[in-house]
Each structure stands twice: as structure tokens, then as C-alpha cells.
Design a protein around this nucleic acid. Structure first.
Length: 408
RNA sequence: GCUGGAAUAGUCUAGUGGCAAUGACAAGAGACUGUAAAUCUCUCGGCUUCGGCCUUCGUAGGUUCGAGUCCUACUUCCAGCA
């Protein structure tokens, strides 16, 4: 993998660049579509390409039982599940380690991850969690079949090297907003030990499929500057047999107002010549702050999940499709997505969504997902153009003013 | 005409003495950020100072401390018999 920075913002952090992987280039900043189980729900690969998606993120945790099968077919770029009609996504890919599930099945079980929720968030009681963290790794109960299972750094690396995405994530522990400083110190030190074990195991298998796979370390440390800066330095300096990480994942549960600062702390310490992936965020303000503070790639389930739940993105803000019963308006003004170009209106889309017929609903999920995903992909394209063209600050201000209507 | 059965909120539906009344759908509001999420939460007779108050289960009476529920009559619908 090769990463080249083409232009840097005046703040010295934000930049535009190109990541070159075995399966293609990613022009950054870029948004990766989330295809947790190896495909993007309701959007076939050709439509993904058509809407400008440059890469897909899948999850080693969810694909752990198909990993050997994926390896047999040559890796994620030549595999798609037999029960899905889509062709494989042949472009660049990234897999997550399963670290997020440590939190979502553990301290965050049954809870909604939010960046704006009151600070009174609480952790799920230990006795109720489906995932338990030990030094070795994470013991968990599969929520679907209730079978006990275990993933540690070595397991995650072997799974990811069988899946064969271009970029892998080290196995990390994501803490929740409710965790204390003391717990974050403990979890962070463990995450760094896991990072080293991840790197060691990754190096053994990174060429197993006949092409070079790459590993990012993940920075945790919650909202504390000392933890963030120190872990950035530690992970940037980490070497196993002379080899370091190929890039860095920026992880954690944030409050919105803290995001920019946290990214600045991390990225001021990280080497500029390595790419950085901001894990799991995609609302426009998060992308704009992320890009400004030096994140190169993004991923998030929100555009498509919110589409499925009836929230439609527009430059003037979002709206809920529920209230658009009779509307003959387009989904969004001047939108270049395939759905809008095909002439779908708010009312006609709503009728599909609320039809109660499975096939129509699936059509709705496709059309709405394409629209929202294109919206976020277009945003990253425009951010890149703004960085390259030296007008990022004006672009950001104008976008936020129009999108949030002065509410931010 | 006779004999049974049935009428409950926008719709369908539960309820056989303590009920502003079950559930579903529809409708309305909110949430969702490295996917246990085609999901979840809330509202859904009126008013309210949020403690309640008022009006509601086809219509009109009655029994009862208390009736959607029991009784009588009537109206409409369904089924069977003529």
C-alpha cells in the first residue's frame, strides 16, 4: 500500500491524498461504504461504483465463520455470500477487527451509541453483558445462536488475513462514554499490548493470499489529551521485527463537541505520511471536522441505516419521509444520485416504504440508501476538491450554515 | 314473520360487574454514527395548574355503591327456518 499526500491545509493537519491498494486507489478524504457481512445491504456492487463509492468496509467479527471460505475464493474482492444476489465488490476493502463488538456486546449492550446523548450514559451491568474482556481477548456469546466464542488479537488477525481486505484493523477495545479515566488507562494499555500482538500475527499472514495486506493500529484513550497523545506516540513508534503499522484508526466514543480536539491531539502526534481512518462517523459536521483535523477515510452505518428508517439527507438538512405523503417534490434539490435522477419523488418513495409489501420495501431501501450514501460520498468529493482548491474553510462554513440552518 | 348471533375509538379487534377500555394496523413525534438496527422509544376521546376533571363501547330506559359487561324495549346487520 502506498499513501501520498497531495495537499495539506494551513492548519497542518487536514489533507487530500491518494491511497493505492492492490485492489485500486482511494482518493482522500473518502467515505467507505459499510458492508459488514461482505456486501452493502440493498446496494449491488455496480450501483456502489456508479455512486462514487471508492471502498467498502466489512467486519472480521461478522465474517469469522466464512473466513476460510473467503480465503479459498481468493479474498473479499472475489467473494460474495451465496444468499446475496450481488457481485463481489472488487475495489479497495477494509475490515474491522471486531473491537467495536467488544463494546456493543459488552458495556454498550442494548444501548444506542450517540454523540449527543446526555453525559449520564451508563454501562450495561457486567452480569448482563454478552462480551467479557480479559488480557487474552474477548469471550462473548453470539447474540444470534447463543454459542460461546472467543476472539483475541491473534484470532482477529488470522480471520482478517483470510478475508483478505486491503486494510485491516488491530484488535482494540472501544470504551464507552461512561467509562472512567482509570478504566480508560487500563483499557488503553491493554489495547496497546493487543496492537503489538496484532502486528506480530499480521506479519505472519499478510501475504497469504498472494498480495500484500495492510494493518492499521487503533488509537483509543477516550476524551483525555494525555492518553490520546501518548497512545499516538506509542503506536507510531511500535515495531515488530522492524515493521510498523501501515496506518492508524481513530477510534473511541466521542461527544460531538470533543471530536475536533481529540483528532487534533492524535494527528499532531501521528506521522503525516501514514493514512488515518476515522472509525464509524459520517454526519456532515463530523466529516468536515474530521477532514479538517487530518482524517483521510471514514466509514459509518448511519447514511444507510437512517435511509432505511426514513431519514432523507438534503443540503438543507434532513427530513423524515413519513410526513411526505402527497409530496411531488424530488428527494433533494439538484441531487445527482441515481434515485433522484430517475425521477423519484418524496411521495412516491414514501408509498414504496409504507406499502407493506416486501418487494416494494426492498426497492425503497435500495433507492433511499443510494440517495443518502451518494450524499455523503459527494460531500467527501467536495471536501477533497475544496482542500485541493484552497477553499476548504469557505466550503465548510457555507455547508454547515445551509445544512444546519444556523443551529450549529 | 320466527329463532339465534352481532353492534367497542380513524379501521379491525380484546373485554361477561370496578374501565378511558386489550391488541394490531393506520396516523403523529423523536432517536439512530467501526450494524444484535427493513430497528427502537413516545403519542394516539377532550380538557388539565399533571393531582386530576369531563365525555365515551348502536339508541332509550332499568337493576346496582358501581354497567362496555346484567335486564327490557327499539334500531341496524349477519346466519338459519318459513
Amino acid at each position: 500500500m502506498e499513501f501520498r499526500v497531495e495537499k495539506t491545509l494551513a492548519n497542518g493537519l487536514g489533507r487530500a491524498g491518494v491511497i493505492k491498494t492492490t485492489h485500486g486507489e482511494i482518493k482522500t478524504p473518502a467515505f467507505m461504504a459499510v458492508g459488514t457481512r461482505g456486501f452493502v445491504r440493498f446496494i449491488p456492487a455496480d450501483e456502489l461504483h456508479a455512486l462514487g463509492a471508492q471502498a467498502m468496509l466489512s467486519n472480521g467479527y461478522h465474517l469469522r465463520r466464512q473466513a476460510a471460505e473467503i480465503a479459498m475464493s481468493g479474498g473479499l474482492a472475489s467473494w460474495s455470500p451465496t444468499d446475496q444476489p450481488t457481485e463481489p465488490w472488487q475495489g479497495p476493502t477494509l475490515t474491522d477487527s471486531g473491537g467495536f463488538q467488544v463494546m456493543s456486546l459488552g458495556s454498550g449492550l442494548g444501548k444506542v451509541v450517540s454523540m449527543e446523548r446526555e453525559r449520564g450514559v451508563t454501562n450495561t451491568a457486567h452480569t448482563e453483558r454478552l462480551a467479557k474482556v480479559t488480557e487474552e481477548g474477548v469471550n462473548f456469546i453470539d447474540p444470534f445462536d447463543h454459542q460461546p466464542d472467543f476472539i483475541g488479537p491473534e484470532e482477529s488477525m488470522r480471520i482478517q488475513c483470510q478475508i483478505g481486505a486491503d486494510i485491516h484493523m488491530a484488535f482494540d477495545e472501544l470504551t464507552s462514554l461512561a467509562d472512567t479515566y482509570e478504566y480508560n488507562v487500563e483499557a488503553l494499555q491493554r489495547t496497546e499490548r493487543w496492537a503489538e500482538r496484532s502486528l506480530r500475527e499480521h506479519l505472519k499472514h499478510r501475504d497469504d493470499l498472494g498480495y500484500r495486506q495492510n494493518l492499521y493500529a487503533v488509537l483509543q484513550g477516550g476524551r483525555w489529551e494525555d492518553l490520546r497523545r501518548q497512545t499516538a506516540r506509542n503506536l507510531a513508534a511500535m515495531r515488530v521485527d522492524g515493521a510498523g503499522f501501515d496506518g492508524f484508526g481513530l477510534g473511541g466514543a466521542f461527544l460531538k463537541e470533543d471530536l475536533g480536539e481529540i483528532l487534533r491531539w492524535c494527528n499532531e502526534e501521528l506521522p503525516q505520511e501514514k493514512p488515518r481512518h476515522l472509525l464509524g462517523l459520517s454526519h456532515p459536521d463530523d466529516i468536515l471536522i474530521g477532514a479538517e483535523m487530518g482524517a483521510d477515510t471514514f466509514d459509518c452505518v448511519a447514511p444507510m441505516r437512517e435511509a432505511r428508517h426514513g431519514k432523507i439527507y438534503t443540503l438543507q438538512g434532513n427530513y423524515n419521509l413519513r410526513k411526505m405523503t402527497e409530496s411531488g417534490e424530488p428527494l433533494a434539490k439538484d441531487c445527482d444520485c441515481a434515485t433522484c435522477q430517475a425521477g423519484w419523488t418524496r411521495g412516491s418513495l414514501r408509498a414504496l416504504w409504507r406499502s407493506g409489501e416486501v418487494e416494494k420495501k426492498q426497492k425503497y431501501y435500495n433507492l433511499a440508501s443510494v440517495h443518502n450514501l451518494r450524499f455523503i460520498v459527494r460531500l467527501t468529493e467536495e471536501v477533497r476538491a475544496a482542500i485541493m482548491g484552497d477553499y476548504f474553510t469557505e466550503y465548510k462554513g457555507k455547508f454547515l450554515a445551509e445544512y444546519y440552518g444556523g443551529q450549529i
